Computed example of a mutant assay.
Amino acid sequence: MDGGLPRDADPARLRCLLQERTADLQRVKAEYDNYRKRVRRDRMAVREIAAANILRTLLPVLDAVDRTCAHEPMTPGLADIAHTLDTRLGALGLESFGQEGDPFDPACHEALVHHVSPDATRPTCTRILRAGYRAGPHLLRPATVEVTGPPPG
Protein backbone atom coordinates (compact mmCIF):
# COMPACT_ATOMS: atom_id res chain seq x y z
CA MET A 1 0.00 0.00 0.00
CA ASP A 2 1.30 3.44 -0.96
CA GLY A 3 -0.39 6.41 0.69
CA GLY A 4 -3.28 4.30 2.01
CA LEU A 5 -4.25 2.84 -1.37
CA PRO A 6 -3.87 -0.83 -2.29
CA ARG A 7 -1.34 -1.49 -5.11
CA ASP A 8 -3.81 -3.46 -7.13
CA ALA A 9 -6.55 -0.79 -6.84
CA ASP A 10 -8.77 -0.45 -9.86
CA PRO A 11 -8.91 3.20 -11.08
CA ALA A 12 -12.65 2.91 -11.77
CA ARG A 13 -13.25 1.61 -8.25
CA LEU A 14 -11.12 4.43 -6.80
CA ARG A 15 -13.12 7.02 -8.77
CA CYS A 16 -16.33 5.50 -7.43
CA LEU A 17 -15.01 5.67 -3.84
CA LEU A 18 -13.89 9.26 -4.38
CA GLN A 19 -17.34 10.21 -5.68
CA GLU A 20 -19.01 8.51 -2.69
CA ARG A 21 -16.76 10.32 -0.20
CA THR A 22 -17.25 13.63 -2.00
CA ALA A 23 -21.04 13.16 -1.90
CA ASP A 24 -20.85 12.29 1.81
CA LEU A 25 -18.78 15.40 2.49
CA GLN A 26 -21.19 17.60 0.51
CA ARG A 27 -24.15 16.14 2.44
CA VAL A 28 -22.47 16.80 5.80
CA LYS A 29 -21.58 20.35 4.73
CA ALA A 30 -25.17 21.02 3.62
CA GLU A 31 -26.50 19.67 6.93
CA TYR A 32 -24.10 21.92 8.86
CA ASP A 33 -25.06 24.97 6.77
CA ASN A 34 -28.75 24.27 7.42
CA TYR A 35 -28.02 23.87 11.14
CA ARG A 36 -26.21 27.24 11.24
CA LYS A 37 -29.10 28.95 9.43
CA ARG A 38 -31.65 27.36 11.77
CA VAL A 39 -29.68 28.43 14.87
CA ARG A 40 -29.36 32.00 13.53
CA ARG A 41 -33.09 32.13 12.77
CA ASP A 42 -33.96 30.74 16.24
CA ARG A 43 -31.69 33.28 17.95
CA MET A 44 -33.33 36.13 16.06
CA ALA A 45 -36.79 34.85 17.01
CA VAL A 46 -35.81 34.62 20.68
CA ARG A 47 -34.35 38.14 20.52
CA GLU A 48 -37.56 39.53 18.96
CA ILE A 49 -39.76 37.81 21.54
CA ALA A 50 -37.56 38.99 24.44
CA ALA A 51 -37.58 42.58 23.15
CA ALA A 52 -41.37 42.45 22.69
CA ASN A 53 -41.83 41.16 26.24
CA ILE A 54 -39.62 43.90 27.69
CA LEU A 55 -41.37 46.58 25.65
CA ARG A 56 -44.78 45.25 26.74
CA THR A 57 -43.81 45.62 30.40
CA LEU A 58 -42.69 49.23 29.79
CA LEU A 59 -45.98 50.34 28.18
CA PRO A 60 -47.54 51.43 31.51
CA VAL A 61 -44.49 53.65 32.11
CA LEU A 62 -44.86 55.16 28.65
CA ASP A 63 -48.59 55.71 29.29
CA ALA A 64 -47.84 57.44 32.61
CA VAL A 65 -45.31 59.75 30.96
CA ASP A 66 -47.75 60.54 28.14
CA ARG A 67 -50.56 61.33 30.63
CA THR A 68 -48.21 63.52 32.64
CA CYS A 69 -47.11 65.41 29.52
CA ALA A 70 -50.75 65.94 28.54
CA HIS A 71 -51.94 67.19 31.96
CA GLU A 72 -48.95 68.89 33.57
CA PRO A 73 -46.89 71.88 32.54
CA MET A 74 -43.99 70.73 30.38
CA THR A 75 -40.79 71.23 32.34
CA PRO A 76 -37.36 70.74 30.76
CA GLY A 77 -36.83 67.62 32.88
CA LEU A 78 -40.15 66.08 31.88
CA ALA A 79 -39.53 66.92 28.22
CA ASP A 80 -36.11 65.26 28.43
CA ILE A 81 -37.55 62.13 30.06
CA ALA A 82 -40.32 61.86 27.47
CA HIS A 83 -37.95 62.41 24.55
CA THR A 84 -35.36 59.93 25.86
CA LEU A 85 -38.00 57.29 26.55
CA ASP A 86 -39.49 57.68 23.05
CA THR A 87 -36.05 57.59 21.42
CA ARG A 88 -34.77 54.54 23.31
CA LEU A 89 -37.96 52.52 22.92
CA GLY A 90 -38.10 53.46 19.25
CA ALA A 91 -34.55 52.16 18.84
CA LEU A 92 -35.79 48.82 20.20
CA GLY A 93 -38.46 48.74 17.49
CA LEU A 94 -41.46 50.13 19.38
CA GLU A 95 -43.97 51.84 17.08
CA SER A 96 -47.15 53.52 18.21
CA PHE A 97 -50.22 53.49 16.00
CA GLY A 98 -53.76 54.75 16.05
CA GLN A 99 -54.68 58.06 14.46
CA GLU A 100 -58.05 59.73 14.18
CA GLY A 101 -59.43 58.97 10.74
CA ASP A 102 -57.81 55.53 10.46
CA PRO A 103 -60.13 52.82 9.14
CA PHE A 104 -61.24 50.61 12.02
CA ASP A 105 -59.41 47.26 11.98
CA PRO A 106 -60.48 44.80 14.70
CA ALA A 107 -57.10 43.08 14.43
CA CYS A 108 -55.31 46.13 15.83
CA HIS A 109 -58.04 48.36 17.29
CA GLU A 110 -60.24 47.79 20.31
CA ALA A 111 -63.49 49.75 20.10
CA LEU A 112 -64.97 50.93 23.38
CA VAL A 113 -67.63 53.21 21.89
CA HIS A 114 -69.48 52.97 18.59
CA HIS A 115 -71.31 55.98 17.13
CA VAL A 116 -73.65 55.76 14.15
CA SER A 117 -73.52 58.41 11.44
CA PRO A 118 -75.54 58.39 8.22
CA ASP A 119 -72.61 60.13 6.49
CA ALA A 120 -70.14 57.34 7.31
CA THR A 121 -69.33 54.83 4.59
CA ARG A 122 -67.21 52.53 6.75
CA PRO A 123 -66.20 52.22 10.40
CA THR A 124 -63.57 54.85 11.18
CA CYS A 125 -61.58 55.64 14.33
CA THR A 126 -62.87 59.04 15.45
CA ARG A 127 -61.09 59.32 18.80
CA ILE A 128 -58.01 57.59 20.15
CA LEU A 129 -58.45 56.77 23.83
CA ARG A 130 -55.16 54.93 24.21
CA ALA A 131 -52.41 54.44 21.63
CA GLY A 132 -51.63 50.99 20.33
CA TYR A 133 -48.11 49.62 20.04
CA ARG A 134 -46.30 47.07 17.95
CA ALA A 135 -42.71 45.91 17.72
CA GLY A 136 -41.94 44.52 14.29
CA PRO A 137 -44.56 41.87 13.54
CA HIS A 138 -45.67 41.63 17.19
CA LEU A 139 -48.80 43.46 18.30
CA LEU A 140 -48.02 44.52 21.86
CA ARG A 141 -51.30 46.28 22.57
CA PRO A 142 -54.27 47.23 20.38
CA ALA A 143 -55.25 50.88 20.15
CA THR A 144 -58.33 51.68 22.21
CA VAL A 145 -60.66 53.82 20.10
CA GLU A 146 -64.09 55.33 19.56
CA VAL A 147 -65.54 54.29 16.20
CA THR A 148 -68.05 55.99 13.95
CA GLY A 149 -69.71 53.88 11.29
CA PRO A 150 -72.72 53.69 8.99
CA PRO A 151 -76.12 52.67 10.33
CA PRO A 152 -76.73 48.91 10.39
CA GLY A 153 -78.50 47.37 7.44
Rank of each mutant, 00 (worst) to 15 (best):
V61S: 00
R88I: 00
V65N: 01
T121Y: 09
G90Y: 02
A30Y: 08
G136I: 00
P142K: 11
C16N: 15
C69E: 12
A79Y: 09
C108N: 02
Q26W: 03
V145Q: 04
R130I: 01
L58M: 13
L139N: 07
E95Q: 12
A9L: 13
T144P: 00
F97C: 02
D24E: 14
N53V: 01
A64W: 04
L62A: 10
N34S: 15
R141K: 12
L78G: 05
F104L: 08
E146S: 12
A12M: 11
T144A: 12
L62P: 01
V145P: 06
G4E: 06
D119M: 03
V116K: 02
K29A: 15
S96E: 11
L78D: 01
A50M: 01
P118D: 13
T87C: 08
A131F: 09
D105R: 01
L112A: 11
L5G: 09
A70C: 07
F104E: 04
R21T: 11
P152E: 06
I128A: 07
G153M: 05
V46R: 12
H71M: 11
A82R: 13
I81W: 01
E100S: 10
T124Y: 06
T121S: 15
D102P: 04
P151F: 07
A107W: 07
A79K: 06
G149I: 07
R47G: 00
T57G: 03
P118V: 10
R130P: 02
A143G: 09
P11D: 09
D8P: 05
D8G: 12
L89Y: 07
C16R: 15
Q99L: 02
G149L: 05
D42Y: 08
T144M: 14
Y35L: 05
H71Y: 10
A9Y: 04
N34H: 15
R47A: 12
L129A: 07
N53Q: 13
I49H: 12
R134H: 04
L5R: 14
L140M: 06
V61Y: 06
I49M: 13
A51P: 03
Y133V: 00
G93S: 02
N53A: 11
T84N: 13
R88D: 06
D63G: 09
V145Y: 08
R88V: 13
C69F: 04
L62I: 08
H138Q: 10
G3Y: 14
A143W: 09
E72S: 11
G132E: 10
S117P: 01
C125L: 11
T57K: 09
Y35N: 03
A12V: 10
G98P: 00
R67A: 08
E48N: 07
D8H: 14
D33K: 08
R40F: 11
H114N: 13
I128L: 14
D63Q: 04
V39M: 08
A51S: 03
P60N: 08
A23T: 11
P11M: 09
A30H: 14
T144V: 14
E110V: 04
T144G: 05
H114V: 15
V145M: 05
R36M: 14
